[in-house]
Design a protein around this nucleic acid. Structure first.
Lengths: 233, 233
DNA sequence: TTATTGTTGACAATAAAATAACAGGAGTGC
DNA sequence: GCACTCCTGTTATTTTATTGTCAACAATAA
Protein backbone atom coordinates (compact mmCIF):
# COMPACT_ATOMS: atom_id res chain seq x y z
CA UNK A 1 0.00 0.00 0.00
CA UNK A 2 2.96 2.33 -0.55
CA UNK A 3 2.16 5.57 -2.33
CA UNK A 4 4.85 7.04 -4.56
CA UNK A 5 3.14 10.14 -5.83
CA UNK A 6 0.43 12.01 -3.99
CA UNK A 7 -3.14 11.16 -4.89
CA UNK A 8 -5.40 14.11 -5.42
CA UNK A 9 -8.17 14.73 -2.87
CA UNK A 10 -10.77 14.68 -5.63
CA UNK A 11 -9.85 11.08 -6.37
CA UNK A 12 -9.85 10.04 -2.74
CA UNK A 13 -13.29 11.48 -2.24
CA UNK A 14 -14.59 9.38 -5.10
CA UNK A 15 -13.17 6.11 -3.80
CA UNK A 16 -15.95 5.34 -1.31
CA UNK A 17 -18.46 5.82 -4.08
CA UNK A 18 -16.67 3.32 -6.31
CA UNK A 19 -16.54 0.97 -3.39
CA UNK A 20 -20.27 1.27 -2.85
CA UNK A 21 -21.14 0.65 -6.48
CA UNK A 22 -18.84 -2.33 -6.68
CA UNK A 23 -20.45 -3.73 -3.55
CA UNK A 24 -23.84 -3.36 -5.20
CA UNK A 25 -22.62 -5.14 -8.31
CA UNK A 26 -21.21 -7.92 -6.19
CA UNK A 27 -24.59 -8.37 -4.54
CA UNK A 28 -26.17 -8.58 -7.97
CA UNK A 29 -23.74 -11.39 -8.86
CA UNK A 30 -22.10 -9.37 -11.60
CA UNK A 31 -18.56 -10.65 -11.95
CA UNK A 32 -17.05 -8.27 -14.49
CA UNK A 33 -17.65 -4.71 -15.60
CA UNK A 34 -16.03 -2.34 -18.06
CA UNK A 35 -15.30 1.27 -17.32
CA UNK A 36 -17.91 2.13 -19.92
CA UNK A 37 -20.66 0.19 -18.19
CA UNK A 38 -19.70 1.53 -14.79
CA UNK A 39 -19.60 4.98 -16.29
CA UNK A 40 -23.24 4.67 -17.31
CA UNK A 41 -24.27 3.54 -13.83
CA UNK A 42 -22.29 6.11 -11.93
CA UNK A 43 -22.65 9.13 -14.17
CA UNK A 44 -18.93 9.64 -14.44
CA UNK A 45 -16.94 9.43 -17.65
CA UNK A 46 -15.29 6.11 -18.35
CA UNK A 47 -12.07 7.98 -18.80
CA UNK A 48 -12.18 9.32 -15.30
CA UNK A 49 -12.91 5.93 -13.83
CA UNK A 50 -9.90 4.41 -15.55
CA UNK A 51 -7.70 7.28 -14.54
CA UNK A 52 -8.89 7.23 -10.95
CA UNK A 53 -8.26 3.53 -10.59
CA UNK A 54 -4.90 3.74 -12.29
CA UNK A 55 -3.67 5.97 -9.54
CA UNK A 56 -3.52 2.84 -7.44
CA UNK A 57 -2.61 0.19 -10.00
CA UNK A 58 -3.74 -1.56 -13.13
CA UNK A 59 -6.70 -3.50 -11.87
CA UNK A 60 -8.32 -4.11 -15.23
CA UNK A 61 -7.61 -6.24 -18.22
CA UNK A 62 -7.81 -5.19 -21.83
CA UNK A 63 -10.66 -6.79 -23.68
CA UNK A 64 -12.20 -7.93 -20.41
CA UNK A 65 -12.73 -5.03 -18.10
CA UNK A 66 -12.53 -5.15 -14.35
CA UNK A 67 -13.22 -8.13 -12.17
CA UNK A 68 -15.79 -6.82 -9.72
CA UNK A 69 -14.80 -8.89 -6.71
CA UNK A 70 -11.11 -8.24 -7.17
CA UNK A 71 -11.52 -4.52 -7.69
CA UNK A 72 -13.92 -4.25 -4.76
CA UNK A 73 -11.39 -5.92 -2.54
CA UNK A 74 -8.53 -3.79 -3.81
CA UNK A 75 -10.42 -0.59 -3.05
CA UNK A 76 -11.28 -2.01 0.34
CA UNK A 77 -7.59 -2.38 1.01
CA UNK A 78 -6.81 1.06 -0.39
CA UNK A 79 -9.35 2.65 1.93
CA UNK A 80 -8.00 0.61 4.81
CA UNK A 81 -11.29 -1.15 5.44
CA UNK A 82 -9.58 -4.48 6.05
CA UNK A 83 -9.00 -3.79 9.69
CA UNK A 84 -10.90 -2.65 12.77
CA UNK A 85 -10.99 0.91 13.99
CA UNK A 86 -11.46 1.95 17.57
CA UNK A 87 -13.53 5.05 17.94
CA UNK A 88 -14.89 7.17 20.73
CA UNK A 89 -17.72 9.67 20.67
CA UNK A 90 -17.14 12.93 22.47
CA UNK A 91 -20.47 14.58 23.15
CA UNK A 92 -23.41 12.31 23.92
CA UNK A 93 -26.14 14.54 22.53
CA UNK A 94 -28.53 13.91 19.68
CA UNK A 95 -26.06 13.25 16.94
CA UNK A 96 -23.58 11.44 19.14
CA UNK A 97 -26.24 9.01 20.27
CA UNK A 98 -27.54 8.54 16.76
CA UNK A 99 -24.10 7.54 15.58
CA UNK A 100 -23.68 5.05 18.41
CA UNK A 101 -27.01 3.54 17.46
CA UNK A 102 -26.08 3.27 13.82
CA UNK A 103 -25.27 -0.42 13.61
CA UNK A 104 -23.87 -0.34 10.11
CA UNK A 105 -20.68 1.21 11.34
CA UNK A 106 -19.91 -1.84 13.40
CA UNK A 107 -20.59 -4.12 10.47
CA UNK A 108 -17.88 -2.34 8.57
CA UNK A 109 -15.39 -2.52 11.40
CA UNK A 110 -15.88 0.95 12.83
CA UNK A 111 -16.28 0.14 16.50
CA UNK A 112 -17.41 2.81 18.92
CA UNK A 113 -15.85 1.82 22.23
CA UNK A 114 -16.95 4.62 24.52
CA UNK A 115 -18.86 7.86 24.78
CA UNK A 116 -17.71 10.86 26.79
CA UNK A 117 -19.86 13.68 28.07
CA UNK A 118 -20.10 16.22 30.87
CA UNK A 119 -23.80 15.76 31.54
CA UNK A 120 -24.25 13.90 34.87
CA UNK A 121 -27.55 12.50 33.66
CA UNK A 122 -25.80 10.72 30.80
CA UNK A 123 -22.68 9.56 32.61
CA UNK A 124 -22.99 5.94 33.66
CA UNK A 125 -25.67 5.16 31.11
CA UNK A 126 -25.06 2.79 28.27
CA UNK A 127 -26.20 3.38 24.70
CA UNK A 128 -26.58 0.14 22.79
CA UNK A 129 -24.06 -1.39 25.14
CA UNK A 130 -21.59 1.47 24.91
CA UNK A 131 -20.87 3.15 28.20
CA UNK A 132 -20.95 6.92 28.72
CA UNK A 133 -18.04 8.21 30.79
CA UNK A 134 -17.21 11.54 32.31
CA UNK A 135 -14.98 13.63 30.09
CA UNK A 136 -12.52 13.75 32.97
CA UNK A 137 -11.80 10.09 32.31
CA UNK A 138 -10.94 10.71 28.67
CA UNK A 139 -7.22 11.32 29.03
CA UNK A 140 -6.74 8.13 30.99
CA UNK A 141 -8.87 6.17 28.55
CA UNK A 142 -7.01 7.35 25.48
CA UNK A 143 -3.64 6.73 27.03
CA UNK A 144 -4.58 3.14 27.87
CA UNK A 145 -6.54 2.33 24.73
CA UNK A 146 -5.64 2.83 21.14
CA UNK A 147 -8.14 5.32 19.74
CA UNK A 148 -8.05 5.69 15.99
CA UNK A 149 -10.86 8.17 15.58
CA UNK A 150 -12.65 10.57 17.90
CA UNK A 151 -16.09 11.59 16.77
CA UNK A 152 -16.72 15.15 17.89
CA UNK A 153 -20.38 15.92 18.43
CA UNK A 154 -20.26 18.69 20.96
CA UNK A 155 -20.96 22.41 21.10
CA UNK A 156 -18.48 24.35 19.08
CA UNK A 157 -17.17 26.41 21.96
CA UNK A 158 -16.02 23.23 23.66
CA UNK A 159 -14.83 21.47 20.51
CA UNK A 160 -11.71 23.53 20.01
CA UNK A 161 -10.22 22.71 23.40
CA UNK A 162 -11.25 19.06 23.28
CA UNK A 163 -9.72 18.62 19.84
CA UNK A 164 -6.49 20.03 21.12
CA UNK A 165 -6.43 17.66 24.08
CA UNK A 166 -7.27 14.66 21.94
CA UNK A 167 -4.45 15.48 19.57
CA UNK A 168 -2.05 15.81 22.46
CA UNK A 169 -3.09 12.45 23.88
CA UNK A 170 -2.54 10.64 20.62
CA UNK A 171 -5.84 10.33 18.76
CA UNK A 172 -5.01 9.95 15.08
CA UNK A 173 -8.11 11.27 13.39
CA UNK A 174 -11.14 13.35 14.19
CA UNK A 175 -14.50 13.17 12.57
CA UNK A 176 -15.82 16.58 13.37
CA UNK A 177 -19.52 17.37 13.53
CA UNK A 178 -19.01 20.57 15.50
CA UNK A 179 -19.72 23.72 13.58
CA UNK A 180 -16.21 25.05 13.77
CA UNK A 181 -12.89 24.59 11.99
CA UNK A 182 -10.50 22.82 14.29
CA UNK A 183 -6.91 23.84 14.65
CA UNK A 184 -4.84 20.72 15.24
CA UNK A 185 -1.25 19.60 14.58
CA UNK A 186 -0.35 18.37 11.10
CA UNK A 187 -0.13 14.74 12.14
CA UNK A 188 -3.76 14.68 13.24
CA UNK A 189 -6.32 14.30 10.50
CA UNK A 190 -9.66 16.03 10.57
CA UNK A 191 -12.66 15.29 8.43
CA UNK A 192 -15.44 17.80 8.81
CA UNK A 193 -19.14 17.08 8.54
CA UNK A 194 -20.72 20.49 8.63
CA UNK A 195 -24.38 19.63 8.36
CA UNK A 196 -25.58 23.19 8.48
CA UNK A 197 -23.25 24.18 5.67
CA UNK A 198 -24.47 21.30 3.60
CA UNK A 199 -28.07 22.30 4.12
CA UNK A 200 -27.29 25.91 3.26
CA UNK A 201 -25.80 25.00 -0.08
CA UNK A 202 -28.97 23.05 -0.82
CA UNK A 203 -31.04 26.09 0.05
CA UNK A 204 -28.91 28.27 -2.19
CA UNK A 205 -29.58 25.96 -5.09
CA UNK A 206 -33.29 25.84 -4.35
CA UNK A 207 -33.46 29.61 -4.28
CA UNK A 208 -31.47 29.86 -7.47
CA UNK A 209 -33.85 27.53 -9.24
CA UNK A 210 -37.05 29.05 -7.91
CA UNK A 211 -35.78 32.62 -7.77
CA UNK A 212 -38.51 33.94 -10.07
CA UNK A 213 -41.32 32.31 -8.09
CA UNK A 214 -43.53 34.51 -6.02
CA UNK A 215 -45.77 32.09 -4.13
CA UNK A 216 -42.78 31.21 -2.02
CA UNK A 217 -42.48 34.61 -0.57
CA UNK A 218 -43.92 34.15 2.84
CA UNK A 219 -40.65 35.56 3.91
CA UNK A 220 -39.48 36.53 7.31
CA UNK A 221 -36.69 38.97 7.62
CA UNK A 222 -35.16 38.36 11.00
CA UNK A 223 -34.76 35.13 12.86
CA UNK A 224 -38.38 34.70 13.77
CA UNK A 225 -38.59 31.59 15.85
CA UNK A 226 -37.22 31.24 19.35
CA UNK A 227 -36.39 27.64 20.09
CA UNK A 228 -37.52 26.02 23.29
CA UNK A 229 -34.10 24.90 24.40
CA UNK A 230 -30.66 25.91 23.32
CA UNK A 231 -28.84 22.66 22.98
CA UNK A 232 -25.64 22.90 21.05
CA UNK A 233 -24.06 24.53 18.05
CA UNK B 1 -30.69 38.09 -6.27
CA UNK B 2 -30.57 37.63 -10.04
CA UNK B 3 -27.76 35.49 -11.36
CA UNK B 4 -26.44 36.31 -14.81
CA UNK B 5 -23.62 33.85 -15.14
CA UNK B 6 -23.47 30.52 -13.39
CA UNK B 7 -21.53 30.40 -10.15
CA UNK B 8 -19.13 27.51 -9.76
CA UNK B 9 -20.02 24.83 -7.20
CA UNK B 10 -16.69 25.29 -5.47
CA UNK B 11 -17.64 28.86 -4.66
CA UNK B 12 -21.12 27.96 -3.46
CA UNK B 13 -19.70 25.36 -1.13
CA UNK B 14 -17.49 27.98 0.46
CA UNK B 15 -20.27 30.48 1.07
CA UNK B 16 -21.58 28.94 4.30
CA UNK B 17 -18.08 29.02 5.69
CA UNK B 18 -17.72 32.72 4.93
CA UNK B 19 -21.09 33.24 6.52
CA UNK B 20 -19.98 31.45 9.66
CA UNK B 21 -16.75 33.39 10.01
CA UNK B 22 -18.50 36.69 9.44
CA UNK B 23 -21.01 35.74 12.11
CA UNK B 24 -18.16 35.06 14.50
CA UNK B 25 -16.57 38.42 13.70
CA UNK B 26 -19.88 40.12 14.27
CA UNK B 27 -20.10 38.53 17.69
CA UNK B 28 -16.62 39.79 18.46
CA UNK B 29 -17.76 43.32 17.58
CA UNK B 30 -15.37 43.59 14.67
CA UNK B 31 -16.89 46.00 12.21
CA UNK B 32 -14.52 45.84 9.26
CA UNK B 33 -12.14 43.29 7.80
CA UNK B 34 -9.87 43.12 4.79
CA UNK B 35 -9.56 40.12 2.53
CA UNK B 36 -6.03 39.77 3.84
CA UNK B 37 -7.08 39.56 7.48
CA UNK B 38 -9.90 37.17 6.69
CA UNK B 39 -7.47 35.14 4.63
CA UNK B 40 -5.30 34.60 7.69
CA UNK B 41 -8.24 33.51 9.81
CA UNK B 42 -9.78 31.18 7.27
CA UNK B 43 -6.70 29.71 5.65
CA UNK B 44 -7.76 30.73 2.18
CA UNK B 45 -5.83 33.12 -0.05
CA UNK B 46 -7.04 36.71 0.01
CA UNK B 47 -7.26 36.52 -3.72
CA UNK B 48 -9.75 33.72 -3.58
CA UNK B 49 -11.88 35.53 -1.04
CA UNK B 50 -12.09 38.60 -3.23
CA UNK B 51 -12.83 36.57 -6.31
CA UNK B 52 -15.46 34.49 -4.55
CA UNK B 53 -17.29 37.51 -3.22
CA UNK B 54 -17.08 39.32 -6.52
CA UNK B 55 -19.16 36.63 -8.11
CA UNK B 56 -22.08 38.19 -6.30
CA UNK B 57 -21.14 41.85 -6.30
CA UNK B 58 -18.67 44.42 -5.09
CA UNK B 59 -19.28 44.34 -1.38
CA UNK B 60 -15.98 45.86 -0.37
CA UNK B 61 -14.39 49.24 -0.57
CA UNK B 62 -10.87 50.04 -1.64
CA UNK B 63 -8.68 51.22 1.18
CA UNK B 64 -11.24 50.07 3.74
CA UNK B 65 -12.04 46.43 3.27
CA UNK B 66 -15.40 44.82 3.89
CA UNK B 67 -18.00 45.95 6.37
CA UNK B 68 -18.62 42.83 8.41
CA UNK B 69 -22.28 43.39 9.18
CA UNK B 70 -23.11 44.37 5.63
CA UNK B 71 -21.25 41.47 4.08
CA UNK B 72 -22.71 39.02 6.56
CA UNK B 73 -26.16 40.17 5.65
CA UNK B 74 -25.48 40.05 1.92
CA UNK B 75 -24.29 36.45 2.13
CA UNK B 76 -27.33 35.68 4.21
CA UNK B 77 -29.47 36.93 1.36
CA UNK B 78 -27.40 35.12 -1.25
CA UNK B 79 -27.84 31.84 0.59
CA UNK B 80 -31.52 32.57 0.98
CA UNK B 81 -31.39 32.54 4.77
CA UNK B 82 -33.74 35.51 5.04
CA UNK B 83 -36.84 33.38 4.88
CA UNK B 84 -38.33 30.34 6.52
CA UNK B 85 -38.10 26.84 5.11
CA UNK B 86 -40.61 24.11 5.67
CA UNK B 87 -39.04 20.72 6.00
CA UNK B 88 -40.17 17.19 6.64
CA UNK B 89 -38.17 14.23 7.84
CA UNK B 90 -38.77 10.95 6.08
CA UNK B 91 -37.51 8.14 8.27
CA UNK B 92 -37.81 8.56 12.02
CA UNK B 93 -34.80 6.49 13.00
CA UNK B 94 -31.67 7.55 14.81
CA UNK B 95 -30.53 10.25 12.51
CA UNK B 96 -33.99 11.51 11.69
CA UNK B 97 -34.76 11.98 15.35
CA UNK B 98 -31.43 13.60 16.03
CA UNK B 99 -32.09 16.19 13.35
CA UNK B 100 -35.55 16.95 14.75
CA UNK B 101 -33.98 17.46 18.15
CA UNK B 102 -31.31 19.75 16.81
CA UNK B 103 -32.73 23.10 17.85
CA UNK B 104 -30.26 25.22 15.96
CA UNK B 105 -32.00 24.50 12.72
CA UNK B 106 -35.12 26.21 13.93
CA UNK B 107 -33.15 29.22 15.09
CA UNK B 108 -31.96 29.67 11.55
CA UNK B 109 -35.39 29.32 10.04
CA UNK B 110 -35.21 25.67 9.04
CA UNK B 111 -38.48 24.40 10.46
CA UNK B 112 -39.17 20.69 10.58
CA UNK B 113 -42.94 20.43 10.35
CA UNK B 114 -43.50 16.69 10.35
CA UNK B 115 -41.85 13.29 10.45
CA UNK B 116 -42.99 10.31 8.38
CA UNK B 117 -42.25 6.68 9.09
CA UNK B 118 -43.67 3.21 8.58
CA UNK B 119 -42.97 1.95 12.09
CA UNK B 120 -46.29 1.67 14.01
CA UNK B 121 -44.45 2.23 17.27
CA UNK B 122 -43.33 5.64 16.10
CA UNK B 123 -46.48 6.79 14.34
CA UNK B 124 -48.53 9.08 16.55
CA UNK B 125 -45.58 9.99 18.74
CA UNK B 126 -44.22 13.49 18.86
CA UNK B 127 -40.53 14.35 18.87
CA UNK B 128 -39.88 17.73 20.42
CA UNK B 129 -43.39 18.72 19.44
CA UNK B 130 -43.13 17.39 15.91
CA UNK B 131 -45.66 14.70 15.08
CA UNK B 132 -44.75 11.41 13.44
CA UNK B 133 -47.18 10.38 10.69
CA UNK B 134 -47.65 7.25 8.65
CA UNK B 135 -45.88 7.45 5.32
CA UNK B 136 -49.24 6.81 3.70
CA UNK B 137 -50.23 10.32 4.73
CA UNK B 138 -47.25 11.88 3.02
CA UNK B 139 -48.77 12.52 -0.38
CA UNK B 140 -51.74 14.30 1.11
CA UNK B 141 -49.53 16.31 3.43
CA UNK B 142 -47.22 17.50 0.71
CA UNK B 143 -50.05 18.45 -1.59
CA UNK B 144 -51.64 20.58 1.10
CA UNK B 145 -48.50 22.05 2.59
CA UNK B 146 -45.60 23.70 0.91
CA UNK B 147 -42.57 21.51 1.59
CA UNK B 148 -39.27 23.05 0.64
CA UNK B 149 -36.96 20.29 1.76
CA UNK B 150 -37.42 16.62 2.55
CA UNK B 151 -34.77 15.15 4.78
CA UNK B 152 -34.25 11.54 3.80
CA UNK B 153 -33.02 9.39 6.66
CA UNK B 154 -34.27 5.97 5.68
CA UNK B 155 -32.82 2.66 4.51
CA UNK B 156 -31.38 2.95 1.06
CA UNK B 157 -33.62 0.38 -0.52
CA UNK B 158 -36.63 2.49 0.36
CA UNK B 159 -35.02 5.84 -0.39
CA UNK B 160 -35.07 5.52 -4.16
CA UNK B 161 -38.82 5.06 -4.40
CA UNK B 162 -39.60 7.68 -1.77
CA UNK B 163 -37.41 10.24 -3.51
CA UNK B 164 -39.25 9.61 -6.72
CA UNK B 165 -42.62 10.10 -5.07
CA UNK B 166 -41.53 13.24 -3.29
CA UNK B 167 -40.30 14.72 -6.54
CA UNK B 168 -43.59 13.90 -8.20
CA UNK B 169 -45.55 15.54 -5.42
CA UNK B 170 -43.62 18.77 -5.60
CA UNK B 171 -40.87 18.77 -2.99
CA UNK B 172 -38.19 21.14 -4.20
CA UNK B 173 -35.09 19.81 -2.51
CA UNK B 174 -33.87 16.71 -0.78
CA UNK B 175 -31.26 16.46 1.87
CA UNK B 176 -30.23 12.88 1.49
CA UNK B 177 -28.66 10.89 4.30
CA UNK B 178 -29.42 7.55 2.69
CA UNK B 179 -26.41 5.71 1.39
CA UNK B 180 -27.48 5.76 -2.22
CA UNK B 181 -27.39 8.14 -5.17
CA UNK B 182 -30.91 9.28 -5.92
CA UNK B 183 -32.24 9.55 -9.42
CA UNK B 184 -34.64 12.48 -9.56
CA UNK B 185 -35.85 14.95 -12.20
CA UNK B 186 -33.66 17.92 -13.02
CA UNK B 187 -35.88 20.41 -11.26
CA UNK B 188 -35.44 18.67 -7.92
CA UNK B 189 -32.26 19.42 -6.06
CA UNK B 190 -30.42 16.82 -4.03
CA UNK B 191 -27.70 17.41 -1.50
CA UNK B 192 -26.05 14.25 -0.29
CA UNK B 193 -24.64 13.66 3.17
CA UNK B 194 -22.93 10.34 2.87
CA UNK B 195 -21.58 9.89 6.36
CA UNK B 196 -19.97 6.56 5.69
CA UNK B 197 -18.13 7.95 2.68
CA UNK B 198 -16.89 10.84 4.74
CA UNK B 199 -15.60 8.52 7.43
CA UNK B 200 -13.91 6.31 4.84
CA UNK B 201 -11.94 9.19 3.39
CA UNK B 202 -10.79 10.00 6.90
CA UNK B 203 -9.66 6.41 7.36
CA UNK B 204 -7.81 6.49 4.05
CA UNK B 205 -5.88 9.53 5.20
CA UNK B 206 -5.13 7.98 8.57
CA UNK B 207 -3.80 4.86 6.88
CA UNK B 208 -1.76 6.90 4.47
CA UNK B 209 -0.16 8.82 7.29
CA UNK B 210 0.48 5.83 9.52
CA UNK B 211 1.13 3.33 6.74
CA UNK B 212 4.62 2.48 7.95
CA UNK B 213 3.51 1.91 11.54
CA UNK B 214 3.36 -1.63 12.80
CA UNK B 215 1.78 -1.32 16.24
CA UNK B 216 -1.50 -0.65 14.51
CA UNK B 217 -1.59 -4.00 12.90
CA UNK B 218 -4.06 -5.82 15.05
CA UNK B 219 -5.81 -6.32 11.78
CA UNK B 220 -8.81 -8.39 10.98
CA UNK B 221 -9.31 -9.50 7.48
CA UNK B 222 -13.00 -10.14 7.10
CA UNK B 223 -15.92 -8.34 8.67
CA UNK B 224 -15.48 -9.73 12.12
CA UNK B 225 -18.28 -8.31 14.19
CA UNK B 226 -21.90 -9.29 13.82
CA UNK B 227 -24.14 -6.48 14.94
CA UNK B 228 -27.04 -7.12 17.27
CA UNK B 229 -29.69 -5.55 15.11
CA UNK B 230 -29.76 -4.62 11.46
CA UNK B 231 -31.31 -1.22 11.45
CA UNK B 232 -30.79 0.67 8.26
CA UNK B 233 -28.24 1.37 5.56
C1' DT C 1 -5.08 -19.76 -37.18
C1' DT C 2 -6.58 -15.28 -38.42
C1' DA C 3 -9.70 -11.38 -38.32
C1' DT C 4 -12.60 -8.53 -35.52
C1' DT C 5 -14.21 -6.44 -31.53
C1' DG C 6 -13.75 -4.65 -26.94
C1' DT C 7 -11.25 -2.42 -23.48
C1' DT C 8 -7.41 -0.84 -20.85
C1' DG C 9 -3.58 2.41 -19.63
C1' DA C 10 -1.07 6.27 -21.17
C1' DC C 11 -1.02 10.62 -22.73
C1' DA C 12 -2.73 14.83 -24.98
C1' DA C 13 -6.20 18.37 -24.98
C1' DT C 14 -9.49 20.96 -22.67
C1' DA C 15 -11.85 22.95 -18.83
C1' DA C 16 -12.13 24.55 -14.20
C1' DA C 17 -10.25 26.39 -10.11
C1' DA C 18 -6.88 28.73 -7.49
C1' DT C 19 -3.36 32.04 -7.19
C1' DA C 20 -0.84 36.04 -8.47
C1' DA C 21 -0.41 40.63 -10.47
C1' DC C 22 -1.85 45.11 -10.96
C1' DA C 23 -4.43 49.48 -12.02
C1' DG C 24 -6.73 52.69 -9.71
C1' DG C 25 -10.15 54.45 -6.24
C1' DA C 26 -10.67 55.41 -1.15
C1' DG C 27 -8.95 56.39 3.20
C1' DT C 28 -5.31 58.53 6.23
C1' DG C 29 -1.95 61.69 7.99
C1' DC C 30 0.04 65.89 7.63
C1' DG D 1 -5.40 69.71 -0.31
C1' DC D 2 -1.62 66.63 -1.32
C1' DA D 3 1.15 62.70 -0.90
C1' DC D 4 1.06 58.21 0.44
C1' DT D 5 -0.74 53.81 1.82
C1' DC D 6 -4.27 50.43 1.80
C1' DC D 7 -7.11 47.35 -0.36
C1' DT D 8 -10.57 46.22 -3.80
C1' DG D 9 -12.15 44.47 -8.34
C1' DT D 10 -10.44 42.60 -12.35
C1' DT D 11 -7.42 40.51 -15.53
C1' DA D 12 -3.53 37.29 -16.27
C1' DT D 13 -1.11 33.20 -14.98
C1' DT D 14 -0.53 28.87 -12.95
C1' DT D 15 -2.18 24.76 -11.17
C1' DT D 16 -5.37 21.10 -10.86
C1' DA D 17 -9.05 18.27 -12.64
C1' DT D 18 -11.64 16.27 -16.32
C1' DT D 19 -12.32 14.60 -20.82
C1' DG D 20 -10.90 12.80 -25.32
C1' DT D 21 -7.93 9.93 -28.15
C1' DC D 22 -5.24 6.08 -29.46
C1' DA D 23 -1.83 2.23 -29.54
C1' DA D 24 -1.49 -2.19 -27.55
C1' DC D 25 -3.35 -6.26 -26.15
C1' DA D 26 -7.04 -9.77 -24.70
C1' DA D 27 -11.16 -12.14 -25.84
C1' DT D 28 -14.08 -13.93 -29.12
C1' DA D 29 -15.71 -15.44 -33.59
C1' DA D 30 -14.82 -17.01 -38.12
Amino acid sequence: MDSEKRISPAVINRLPRYYRYLGDLLESDITRISSKELSAKMNITASQIRQDLNNFGGFGQQGYGYNVEYLHNEIKKILGLDRLYNMIVVGGGNIGQALVNYTNFEKRGFVIQAVFDTNPRLIGMTIRGVEVYDVDKMEEYIKHNNVDVAILTLPRVKAVKVANDLAKWGVKGMWNFSHVDLQVPDDVLVENVHLTDSLMTLLYKINEMYSEDSELNQLANGLPIKPKVDLED
